[in-house]
C-alpha cells in the first residue's frame, strides 16, 4: 500500500541513537553512503550490513517497520538488478537469443542491489531517529559555513524539512483520493499500460490541487506566526554535541578504517 513508505518518517523513541545530535547523524549517514561506494567485495558489504544492523538494534526501531518501507522501493531495486544482470560484458554464464548473463553481471547486479538496500535503510535510519525540527536545525548549522559564499542555508534546510515532513501527509491524501475514486467505480488495476496511465488522472489532479492547498495553508500559518526567514532567529532548544556524539565520532572513524581495509581482504572467488 502506498502509505507503507516509511522514508522520511520519524519513529519516536528514547534510544542512544535518538539522543545523538542531528549533525552527527547527518554526517554519519553521508559518510555511510560514501563508504557503500568504497566497498568493493563481499566482506565489505558484510561489515557494512552488520554495522547497520547494530545501529538498528541500538535504536530499537522495529526491523519490520523499516523493511515495510523497502517494499515500496522494491521495483527500483529489482529494475537495477535486472539492468545490471543483462548489461555487463564478461565471461558468459548463460545465453539465450539476445539475452546474455555474465559472471561479472551477476556479481555487479548483486552488489548494486545490496548497495541500494543498505543505502535506503541507512538513510531512513537518520529520519526515523531524528525529529524533523532537529533535522532542520542540524542541516542549517552544517550549511552555515557556506552562507559566507551566499548560500541561503536556512532556506535550504527549511525546504528539505518541509519536503520530508509532508511525505506522509501526501501519502495519506493519495490514499484518500484513491479510495474516493474507487468508490465511484474507478479501476486502477486492469487494462493496458495506456489505460492504466490514463486512470491515474483522477488521482493526480486532485492530489496537485491538495498540495497547493496544503502549501498555501502552511505559508499562511507561518506568516501568522511572524516567520520572516532565517536572519535573527533564535531557538528555544539549542542543540549541543554530547558524550554520545564523541563515541559516535570514534566509531565512525574506526568504521571508515575497517571499510577501507576491507578492500584488501582477499576474496574467496575470482
Amino acid at each position: 500500500m502506498i502509505r507503507d513508505i516509511t522514508l522520511g518518517q520519524y519513529y519516536p523513541g528514547e534510544s542512544p541513537i535518538h539522543r545523538l545530535d542531528a549533525r552527527t547523524k547527518i554526517i554519519a549517514t553521508i559518510l555511510y553512503i560514501i563508504e557503500l561506494f568504497v566497498v568493493n567485495n563481499f566482506w565489505g558489504f558484510l561489515i557494512a550490513a552488520a554495522a547497520l544492523f547494530a545501529v538498528i538494534a541500538v535504536s530499537r526501531v522495529p526491523v519490520k517497520f523499516i523493511f515495510r518501507g523497502l517494499t515500496a522501493v522494491f521495483i527500483i531495486i529489482a529494475f537495477t538488478f535486472i539492468i545490471n544482470l543483462f548489461m555487463v560484458d564478461g565471461r558468459v554464464l548463460w545465453h539465450w537469443r539476445f539475452l546474455t548473463i555474465t559472471y561479472e553481471g551477476v556479481s555487479r547486479a548483486f552488489f548494486m542491489a545490496v548497495r541500494l538496500v543498505l543505502l535506503i535503510i541507512g538513510s531512513s535510519m537518520m529520519t526515523l531517529t531524528t525529529k524533523p525540527i532537529e533535522l532542520t536545525d542540524g542541516l542549517e548549522k552544517l550549511f552555515k559555513p557556506f552562507s559566507l559564499i551566499g548560500l541561503p542555508s536556512h532556506e535550504i534546510a527549511l525546504m528539505m524539512t518541509i519536503a520530508l515532513r509532508f511525505i506522509p501527509t501526501l501519502m495519506e491524501e493519495t490514499d484518500k483520493i484513491i479510495k474516493a475514486q474507487e468508490a465511484r467505480g474507478a479501476d486502477f488495476e486492469s487494462g493496458n499500460l495506456f489505460q492504466r496511465a490514463k486512470s491515474l488522472i483522477p488521482i493526480l489532479i486532485p492530489l496537485f490541487i491538495s498540495s497547493f492547498r496544503i502549501a498555501q495553508d502552511l505559508a499562511l500559518a507561518m506568516e501568522a506566526r511572524c516567520y520572516h526567514g532565517g536572519s535573527g532567529r533564535t531557538r528555544m532548544n539549542e542543540i549541543h554535541f554530547a558524550k554520545g556524539d564523541a563515541v559516535a565520532a570514534v566509531l565512525m572513524v574506526l568504521f571508515l578504517a575497517v571499510i577501507i581495509a576491507s578492500r584488501y581482504i582477499p576474496v574467496l572467488y575470482k
Binding site: 474516493a180 467505480g185 488522472i201
Partner: peptide, 25 residues
C-alpha cells in the same frame, strides 16, 4: 459512498464530465 470533503476528489474540466465519471466506469 460519499467521503468527507468529497469536493477534493473533483478532477474533470467540466461539472458534467465529473458527474459522468462514475456511470462511465
Amino acid at each position: 459512498l460519499v467521503f468527507q470533503y468529497p469536493e477534493y476528489q473533483l478532477f474533470e474540466e467540466t461539472v458534467a464530465k465529473d458527474v459522468a465519471f462514475g456511470p462511465r466506469n
